[in-house]
Design a protein around this nucleic acid. Structure first.
Length: 818
RNA sequence: GCGGGCGUGGUGGAACCGGUAGACACGCCGGCUUUAGGUGCCGGUGGCGCAAGCCAUGGGGGUUCGAAUCCCUCCGCCCGCACCA
C-alpha cells in the first residue's frame, strides 16, 4: 500500500486538535445574538483521581456525539468541562504521604486535561473550573449564605450518622444498609450539632416536578422512593397518667378502631420517664441501652424477630376511649414520623408479628375472608356504628374529618426524606463561611464581600473526630464581622455534594468575578438540555442539584427550578463480564486504547458495542474491527479524492449503480438522523455508515458514476463526524475541501429515499414461499395476482382452496389456504 | 417479599407500529493480492438435510391470516426498594 494512504490516527488526530484549539472552534461566546438557538449538553462532573477510566471515555463519547449533532443542526452548544476536586481520596492520600491534597488533585486534573484533550472532545475550555479553586468556592460559600439568610441552612443537634473510618458525619443518602457509602464501614449514631440544608421543605415539589422532566423512569422511581411521601393523618393519643399527648402519624386512620397497643422508639425522649416508677423501669432501661449499642444494619432488618418491653403505661385511643398498653420496641424508628405509632396488628404485618410475640389482642376492623394480617381494602367492621359497613377508603376520609372536628387529629403528609446534613469534619472541602463571636453576637455569617473564606494550610490532615482545620490556630482565631471582637471560625467543611450541586450554573457564566452568575446569562442556557452520567448518582447528586435549583429559584436567583430537562444514564463497560477493577486486574485503560488505535476508534467502538444505556463488555477484537473500519473509510475517501474525478451529482443522469449508491447515502442520512434524534442509538447509526461504506467498495459500487460515489463517501464522513471527528473531518476535507463541522447536517431527499420497486414477500399460511420485485406503485389487486403467479407459490396452492388473502401494500401478501 | 428491566446464532447486538428473524460487527472458514508476517481486498457463515424442505428468538400455553414483538404462566439473570407506621 502506498505510504500516503496509510491511516495514521496519531497524525490525523493531533493535527485536527491543533486546528480546533487554535481556532477556538468549540467556544461559545457570552454575547450570542438573542435569537440564537442554543443547547446545553453536559456530562456529570468528573472526580479527578489518577487517570480517566473507561467510564469517562464512554460518557464523553456519548455527550460529544450529542453536542456535535446539535451544532451541525444549527444550534449553539454549551459543552463545558470541570472537576469535582474536593473530596476524601485526595485527603486520605495526604494523610498517608503528607502531600498536600491540592498538589495531588492538581496533578490528577492535569492528567485528566491531557487525556480529555487527546480524545478530541469538543469542549469550551474557557469555562473550565475546579470546585477546589477559591474563585469557585467563593460562590459555593455565597450560596450557603443565601440559604442561611433564608433559613434553608441551619444548625441543630441531632442523632447523626458517623463513619468511624472516614471520621466524619454523613448524610442519610450516604449511608447504604447501615454502612458508609464511600468506604463500607458500619456507621454509628452520634448526638452532634451539625449543619443541615432544609431539603425537606422541598420534598413535595421534588416529587411533584419529577412529572415535568424527561428522565429514565427507574431514576424517577428511585427518587420517589427515597423521598417517600405518604399521606395519612396525625392522631393524638393521650397518656392520662403523665398528662402528655403523643401524636402519631398513620397512613391508615381507617383502622384506628383496630388499634390494640401503642409503641415508642427506644430513642424517644419520653421512654424512660414513662417507665419510671413502674415494675418495668429496669427492663426498659436495659432495652433502650441495648438498642443504642446495636448496629444500624440489624435494626433495619425486617426479617428479624420483633422485640420490645412494656412501659407499664397506657394511652387513650381518641376514637373510642380505650386504654392501650404502651411498649418500647426497636421496630419503631425515631427518625420517621413522631417516633411513636399506634399499632393495629390485624392490618399491619409488623404490628401483627409483635402482637403474636407479646400476646396482645388482635382485632379485625376490615372485613374480608383473608387471613390476618390483612393490609388490603374492604368494608369496616367492629369499629363504630357511624363507620361500620363503609368501604375503608371512604371511612378513612370521614374518620379524619371527625378527628379534625374533635381536635384529636388532622390530615397529614409525611416524608422519609430527612434534611441534608452537610457539615464534614474533614479538611479537603469548602469551608463553611461562619464565625462564632466570643462576645455577644453568637454565630455570625461572614459577609459576602469578605468571601472566600480560604482553606488554610495545615500540618496534620489526620482526622481526630474534629476537623483538621481546628488545628490551624491562626486561621481559626479571627474577628467578629459584627462587633469587631474576637471570634472563632467554623472548622467543619461542606459535603462535596454541595460543590457539585451548582457547578452547571457556574459554567454558564464561568468567568464572572462580580457574581456567581448573571441571571440573564443563565436564562439563556438553563436548564441543561441533555445531562449524561452514571445511574449511581440517581439519588445523591441528582436530588441535591434539584433541591439547589428550587431553592435558588425561590430566592429569585435563577429561572429554572429543574436543573436537567433530559437525563441519560449510561451503562457500565465491563471486561469478561465483570466490573473493571485494579484488584481483578481486568482494567482497560483509555490511554492504552487511544495509544494503540487512536481516539476515534476508541470512541466509535464504545458507541458501537451496544445501546449506550446498557452495560457492555469490552473486547479488544471488537476495537480492532472498528479500527479497520475507520481505516477503510479514510482510505476509500483518500483514494477517491485523487482517483475519482470530481463531477457534479446529476441524479437524473445516473445509471442503476450510481442511483443505488446515491440512494444508499440518503437512506443512511435518514437512518443516522433518526437514531440520533429519537433515542441514543449510536450503535445502529454507526452500523448504517458501515453499510454505506460497504456500498462504496470498489467492487460493490460497480459502474456507479464518480459523482455518486464521492457524494456517498462524503456523506459517510459527514455522518460519522459526531462519533469519529478527526477521521471524519480529515476524510471529508480530502474529498470535498470543506470543513465538515462547518457544514450543516445533511438532509435526506425524500425522492431518493423512496425506491421505485420493492421486494414483495409472498407467504402461504404465514410461511415465506417466494419474493418478487414489484413496482412501488402496484395496487393491491396487482400484488394479489402477482403473488399467486409465483412458481413456488403455485406449487403450494396446488389443489387447495384459498380462504383468505391478506395484502399489506409495500410489504407482503399472505395467502391462507386449506 | 414488593417494584422495574432483561433473556435472539460461537460472541456483541439488529429487527422503532404485530408483517422477510439474525442488519452491522467480532470470531471462524475459503479465496485473492504478496512484501515474510501482521495488514489489505473479495466471498461464505443460525441448526438439521443431497435437496424440496423442516426447525429456530429462555420453557409451556393463548390471541392472530401472521408473534422476538401482544396476553397468561413458569424458569433464569440484573437493578432498585425493603420494620418508613
Amino acid at each position: 500500500m502506498p505510504e500516503e494512504l496509510r491511516y495514521d490516527p496519531k497524525e490525523i488526530e493531533s493535527r485536527w486538535q491543533r486546528v480546533w484549539a487554535h481556532e477556538r472552534t468549540w467556544e461559545v461566546p457570552d454575547d450570542l445574538p438573542a435569537d440564537a438557538e442554543t443547547s446545553y449538553v453536559l456530562e456529570m462532573l468528573p472526580y479527578p483521581s489518577g487517570e480517566p477510566h473507561i467510564g469517562h471515555l464512554k460518557v464523553y463519547s456519548v455527550g460529544d456525539a450529542v453536542a456535535h449533532f446539535h451544532r451541525r443542526r444549527g444550534r449553539r452548544v454549551l459543552h463545558p468541562m470541570g472537576y469535582d476536586a474536593f473530596g476524601l481520596p485526595a485527603e486520605n492520600h495526604a494523610i498517608k504521604t503528607g502531600q498536600h491534597p491540592r498538589a495531588s488533585t492538581d496533578a490528577a486534573i492535569a492528567s485528566f486535561q491531557r487525556e480529555f484533550r487527546s480524545w478530541g472532545i469538543s469542549i469550551d475550555w474557557t469555562r473550565e473550573l475546579g470546585t477546589h479553586e477559591p474563585r469557585y468556592y467563593r460562590w459555593t460559600q455565597w450560596i450557603f449564605l443565601q440559604l442561611l439568610h433564608r433559613g434553608l441552612a441551619y444548625r441543630k443537634e441531632a442523632a447523626v450518622k458517623w463513619c468511624p473510618v472516614d471520621a466524619t458525619v454523613l448524610a442519610n443518602e450516604q449511608v447504604v444498609d447501615g454502612h458508609c457509602e464511600r468506604c463500607g464501614a458500619e456507621v454509628q449514631t452520634r448526638q452532634l450539632e451539625q449543619w443541615f440544608f432544609r431539603i425537606t421543605d422541598y420534598a413535595d415539589r421534588l416529587v411533584e416536578d419529577l412529572g415535568r422532566i424527561e428522565w429514565p423512569e427507574h431514576v424517577k422511581t428511585m427518587q420517589r422512593n427515597w423521598i417517600g411521601r405518604s399521606t395519612g393523618a396525625q392522631v393524638t393519643f393521650r397518656c392520662e397518667e403523665l398528662d402528655v399527648d403523643y401524636p402519631v402519624f398513620t397512613t391508615r386512620p381507617d383502622t384506628l378502631f383496630g388499634a390494640t397497643f401503642f409503641v415508642m422508639a427506644p430513642e424517644h425522649p419520653d421512654v424512660l420517664r414513662l417507665a419510671a416508677g413502674t415494675e418495668h423501669e429496669d427492663a426498659v432501661r436495659a432495652y433502650v441501652n441495648a438498642a443504642a449499642g446495636g448496629s444500624a444494619e440489624d435494626r433495619g432488618d425486617a426479617e428479624r424477630e420483633k422485640t420490645g418491653v412494656p412501659l407499664g403505661r397506657t394511652v387513650t385511643n381518641p376514637v373510642n376511649g380505650e386504654a392501650l398498653p404502651m411498649f418500647v420496641a426497636d421496630y419503631v424508628l425515631m427518625e420517621y414520623g413522631t417516633g411513636a405509632i399506634m399499632a393495629v396488628p390485624a392490618h399491619d404485618a409488623r404490628d401483627f408479628a409483635f402482637a403474636q410475640a407479646y400476646g396482645v389482642e388482635v382485632r379485625r376492623v376490615v372485613g374480608t375472608d383473608e387471613d390476618l394480617p390483612y393490609v388490603g381494602d374492604g368494608p369496616l367492621v367492629n369499629s363504630h356504628p357511624d363507620f361500620d359497613g363503609l368501604h375503608n377508603r371512604d371511612a378513612l376520609e370521614r374518620i379524619v374529618a371527625w378527628l379534625d372536628g374533635e381536635g384529636k387529629g388532622h390530615a397529614s403528609v409525611n416524608y422519609r426524606l430527612r434534611d441534608w446534613l452537610i457539615s464534614r469534619q474533614r479538611y479537603w472541602g469548602c469551608p463553611i463561611p461562619v464565625v462564632y463571636c466570643s462576645g455577644d453576637c453568637g454565630m455570625v455569617a461572614v459577609p459576602a464581600d469578605q468571601l472566600p473564606v480560604e482553606l488554610p494550610d495545615v500540618r496534620d490532615y489526620a482526622p481526630k473526630g474534629r476537623s483538621p482545620l481546628a488545628g490551624a490556630e491562626d486561621w481559626v482565631a479571627t474577628t467578629c464581622p459584627s462587633c469587631g471582637g474576637a471570634a472563632r471560625r467554623e472548622t467543619d467543611t461542606m459535603d462535596t455534594f454541595v460543590d457539585s450541586s451548582w457547578y452547571f450554573l457556574r459554567y454558564c457564566d464561568a468567568n464572572n468575578d462580580e457574581a456567581a452568575w448573571d441571571p440573564a446569562v443563565l436564562a439563556r442556557w438553563m436548564p441543561v438540555d441533555q445531562y449524561i452520567g452514571g445511574v449511581e448518582h440517581a439519588i445523591l447528586h441528582l436530588l441535591y442539584a434539584r433541591f439547589f435549583c428550587k431553592a435558588l429559584s425561590d430566592l429569585g436567583l435563577l429561572g429554572a427550578d429543574e436543573p436537567f430537562a433530559r437525563l441519560f444514564t449510561q451503562g457500565m463497560i465491563t471486561r469478561d463480564g465483570a466490573k473493571m477493577s485494579k484488584s481483578k486486574g481486568n482494567v482497560v485503560s483509555p490511554q492504552a486504547i487511544v495509544e494503540r488505535f487512536g481516539a476515534d476508534t476508541a470512541r466509535c467502538y464504545i458507541l458501537f458495542i451496544g445501546p449506550p444505556d446498557q452495560d457492555a463488555d469490552w473486547s479488544d477484537e471488537g476495537a480492532e474491527g472498528m479500527h479497520r473500519f475507520l481505516g477503510r473509510l479514510w482510505r476509500t475517501c483518500a483514494r477517491a479524492a485523487t482517483e475519482l474525478h470530481d463531477e457534479a451529482l446529476a441524479v437524473e443522469a445516473l445509471g442503476a449503480d450510481g442511483l443505488r449508491v446515491a440512494r444508499k447515502a440518503h437512506w443512511a442520512i435518514d437512518k443516522v438522523t433518526g437514531d440520533m434524534e429519537g433515542r441514543f442509538a449510536f450503535n445502529t447509526a454507526i452500523a448504517a455508515v458501515m453499510e454505506l461504506l460497504n456500498e462504496c467498495g470498489p467492487s460493490r459500487r460497480g459502474a456507479a458514476e464518480s459523482g455518486a460515489v464521492r457524494f456517498a463517501l462524503a456523506t459517510a464522513a459527514s455522518l460519522l463526524f459526531p462519533f469519529a471527528p478527526h477521521t471524519a473531518a480529515d476524510a471529508h476535507e480530502r474529498l470535498t475541501g470543506l470543513r465538515v463541522w462547518e457544514e450543516p447536517w445533511p438532509v435526506a431527499d425524500p425522492a431518493l429515499l423512496a425506491s421505485d420497486t420493492f421486494e414483495l414477500v409472498v407467504q402461504v399460511n404465514g410461511k415465506v414461499r417466494d419474493r418478487v420485485q414489484v413496482p412501488a406503485e402496484a395496487d393491491a389487486e396487482t400484488l394479489r395476482a402477482l403473488a399467486r403467479d409465483q412458481p413456488n407459490v403455485r406449487s403450494h396452492l396446488d389443489g387447495r382452496e384459498v380462504l383468505k388473502e391478506v395484502v399489506v401494500p409495500g410489504r407482503l401478501v399472505n395467502l391462507v389456504v386449506r
